[in-house]
C-alpha cells in the first residue's frame, strides 16, 4: 500500500578513501621531485645573493686588518717594499668609473679561500707598480662579485691601486678594434693622454716573442680586453702571450691584468682586461690621484 518512496536519506559525505599503495608511492615521488626542484632554486639564491653577504663581511674584516697594518709606524728600511702574506690583504683597488663606492681589498693568492674574500693576486706575478704583470683574479657572480662588470671597462678607464706607501694609476689599454685608428696624442680624449697602444699589428707575428726584438714586438697582442680559453695561462705572464720573455731581457711595461669567468655563470672561457700604469703618487705627498674624479 505504501508505495511512496521514502525520501532519500540526506547525502552522507563519502567516507575518506584510504589511499591505495600505488597512489602513496606516486605522490611521494612527486613530493620528492618538487622538493629537489626547490633545493636547486635555493642553491641559485645562495650562489647569487647569500654568498655576497658572507663575502661582504669577510671583505670588511680584510679591509679593517689592512687599515690596522698600514697604521703601524713604517719601517724606514723597507718603507716602499710591499710585503705580502698568503691569504692576507696587501692592497686596495678602485675603479672610479664604477662609482666612488667601488673598492676592494686585494689578497695574496688565488685559492678559493682568498677569492671568496676579495680579488686575489696571482702568486709570483709582479707586485703593484713594478715592471711586469700585476695579475688579479676575481669572482664575477656571487662572493661579492668584484669583477661582475669588468666587461664594461672602456679603454683608458682608470684602475687605481693603493698600497701602504703609494697610489698607482693604471689605465685600460686600447681594445683590439681601436688600435688601428688610435688618435695622435693631442687629439685624444683627456683620459687617454698617456695611453699608447702597446699593440702593433703591422709587425711580423712569427717573431713576436723573440728575446732581442724588444717591447714593440713582445706586446704585439696585448690589448685592453680579450676572451681566452681557461688553460691560456700566458695572459698573466710578464709579457702577455709571451711566457718565454723574462724581465731580464729588457725593460718591460708595468701592466695590470684582471681575470674572471666568461660568459657569466659559466667557466667555459676567461675574460681578461689588461691595463698599463700611467702614474704613481707616493702617499707622502698627501694627495689622492686626480683620476678619482673620473666618474664616467
Amino acid at each position: 500500500m505504501d508505495t511512496a518512496v521514502s525520501p532519500a536519506a540526506p547525502e552522507q559525505p563519502p567516507p575518506p578513501e584510504r589511499d591505495s599503495r600505488g597512489r602513496t608511492v606516486v605522490r611521494t615521488i612527486g613530493e620528492v621531485l618538487i622538493t629537489l626542484g626547490l633545493v636547486v632554486l635555493l642553491f641559485v639564491v645562495y650562489e647569487v645573493y647569500v654568498t655576497d653577504w658572507f663575502s661582504a663581511g669577510k671583505q670588511r674584516d680584510a679591509n679593517a686588518a689592512l687599515e690596522e697594518r698600514w697604521k703601524a709606524p713604517p719601517d724606514p728600511e723597507r718603507s716602499r717594499r710591499i710585503e705580502v702574506t698568503d691569504g692576507e690583504a696587501f692592497a686596495r683597488m678602485y675603479v672610479p668609473s664604477f662609482g666612488a663606492d667601488y673598492q676592494f681589498a686585494i689578497l695574496e693568492g688565488t685559492d678559493d679561500k682568498s677569492l671568496e674574500i676579495g680579488p686575489g693576486h696571482y702568486k709570483g706575478t709582479a707586485l703593484p707598480g713594478l715592471p711586469g704583470n700585476f695579475a688579479i683574479a676575481g669572482h664575477r657572480v656571487g662572493k661579492g662579485a668584484p669583477f661582475n662588470d669588468i666587461d664594461l671597462l672602456n679603454s683608458c678607464d682608470a684602475i687605481i691601486v693603493e698600497t701602504h706607501a703609494s697610489w698607482f694609476v693604471y689605465r685600460v689599454l686600447p681594445k683590439a678594434d681601436e688600435v688601428a685608428g688610435w688618435p695622435a696624442k693631442d687629439q685624444r680624449r683627456p683620459k687617454c693622454r698617456d695611453v699608447e697602444p702597446l699593440w702593433d699589428r703591422s709587425l711580423a707575428n712569427n717573431k713576436r716573442c723573440d728575446p732581442v726584438l724588444g717591447q714593440k714586438y713582445w706586446y704585439r697582442d696585448t690589448v685592453g680586453q680579450e676572451i681566452v680559453r681557461p688553460e691560456d695561462g700566458s695572459v698573466i705572464s710578464p709579457v702577455p702571450h709571451c711566457p718565454s720573455v723574462q724581465p731580464s731581457f729588457g725593460p718591460l711595461a708595468s701592466l695590470l691584468t684582471l681575470t674572471t669567468c666568461h660568459p657569466r655563470f659559466s667557466d667555459r672561457q676567461r675574460l681578461i682586461v689588461h691595463a698599463v700604469m700611467t702614474s704613481e703618487i707616493p702617499k707622502s705627498m698627501g694627495i689622492r690621484p686626480p683620476e678619482f674624479t673620473e666618474t664616467s
Binding site: 635555493l42 645562495y46 647569500v50 695561462g233 711566457p243 681575470t259 669567468c261 667557466d267
Partner: peptide, 25 residues
Amino acid sequence: IALLMFVVFPWVEPKLPFNNVTTTP
C-alpha cells in the same frame, strides 16, 4: 634551509665548475 645554506651548499659549491675565475697554464 639553514642546514642547506650553511653546510650543504658551501660543501657542494667548490665541486661545481661554474665559478672558476683563474687561468691555469
